[in-house]
């Protein structure tokens, strides 16, 4: 029976683009994932991984070749377009707003399409504008706003529709550091206070690490990782080592290491070489030690490498690329 805890369920979603020459691109290939109510899910992957395509298929802006999508227990296809009342989106690369209308006019218009516009709703619009420090600009035409303000205005416009699920495709593009921080704190706050569900796609790992509890990493149309951020980090924390040698690394050592460990990076920090490596199996540490001893390297210090989501992500994506 329908899962009451789930906000979104995507089952075997596939989207193939065929160009005129008949060449087919499997932009989304048998993708399955779930988002729980109140969860902030990060959707990651290199350019062309299929993130935007997945989002647009869920929203019904693209027709998938196959797959079943369930939103709050309802089959999307069966309940379309009424079901759109439950989701909204900021789409990547698009304007999302009328540039010749003011921020407020846009917010009021797009919310009204979702049947949102009561007095209480309007108070909420004001609250959002304040949260995003756009209050002073509410009567400014969007075209006169800076890039970052435009982006924030699009986000406000999506949030103002008060839908339980919100898609944000590259929401921090063009935002300065401070504004990006502001957006993050607002998202966390809304997820917590209003129990809204977010699917955020971004190339900015700081943003994802900060706001998302779980990530789905896509590569070439497929999901390669679907895990809690904290679990993913601890997984990598125990495996990532940094070894400092006394003196430079001999050429032979570097060659041997790159042969044996895919993820190794050797940097010659002027005098003392540094080796960074992620080990995937328990026995790897002994092989590493053997290699070091065999090449007469003097170990000065061994430590766990500081991991952040960016490193984890790069590692996964690189590994994925090697495999294919």
């Amino acid at each position: 029976m329908s899962m009451s805890a789930g906000a979104l369920q995507v089952q075997s979603l596939t989207k193939v683009f065929r160009d005129r020459g008949g060449v087919a691109v499997r932009a989304v290939d048998d993708v399955c994932f779930e988002v729980k109510r109140g969860e902030v899910l990060g959707l990651l992957g290199p350019n062309g991984a299929g993130k935007t395509t997945s989002i647009k298929c869920i929203l019904g802006l693209m027709r998938p070749d196959s797959g079943r999508i369930t939103l709050f227990g309802q089959d999307i296809q069966a309940a379309y377009p009424r079901i759109l009342g439950k989701m909204s989106a900021v789409l990547e690369g698009s304007r999302n707003l009328y540039w010749r209308m003011s921020v407020w006019e846009n917010v009021a218009f797009f919310s009204a399409l979702h049947g949102v516009g009561s007095r209480e709703d309007r108070e909420y619009f004001g609250y959002l504008l304040k949260l995003f420090s756009l209050d002073e600009k509410r009567h400014t035409e969007v075209r006169k706003l800076s890039q970052g303000m435009k982006q924030k205005a699009s986000v406000v416009c999506a949030l103002a529709r008060r839908t339980p699920l919100v898609f944000l495709d590259e929401p921090t593009l063009g935002l300065d550091v401070e504004t990006s921080l502001e957006l993050r704190s607002v998202l966390k706050r809304l997820a917590r206070e209003e129990e809204r569900t977010f699917v955020v796609s971004s190339h900015d790992m700081d943003v994802i690490q900060d706001v998302c509890t779980r990530v789905v990493i896509m590569s070439s149309g497929r999901i390669v990782v679907d895990d809690q951020v904290s679990h993913l980090m601890s997984l990598f924390r125990t495996r990532a080592y940094r070894i400092r040698l006394r003196g430079p690394a001999p050429q032979a050592l570097e060659e041997r290491l790159t042969q044996e460990f895919a993820s190794v990076r050797v940097t010659d920090a002027e005098t003392d070489a540094e080796i960074r490596v992620a080990l995937s199996e328990d026995g790897d540490i002994y092989r590493l030690m053997d290699a070091l001893r065999g090449e007469d390297a003097v170990i000065d210090e061994i430590s766990h490498e500081e991991v952040d989501l960016e490193k984890v992500y790069l590692e996964i994506v690189r590994g994925e690329r090697m495999r294919s």
Binding site: L61, P81, I83, L84, M87, S88, A89, S94, R95, Y98
Partner: peptide, 15 residues
């Protein structure tokens, strides 16, 4: 071209 069409297509009453 500007992208507002997709937003209109998200209206629950149907485009």
């Amino acid at each position: 071209q500007t992208g507002t069409l997709e937003q209109l297509y998200l209206a629950p009453c149907g485009f």
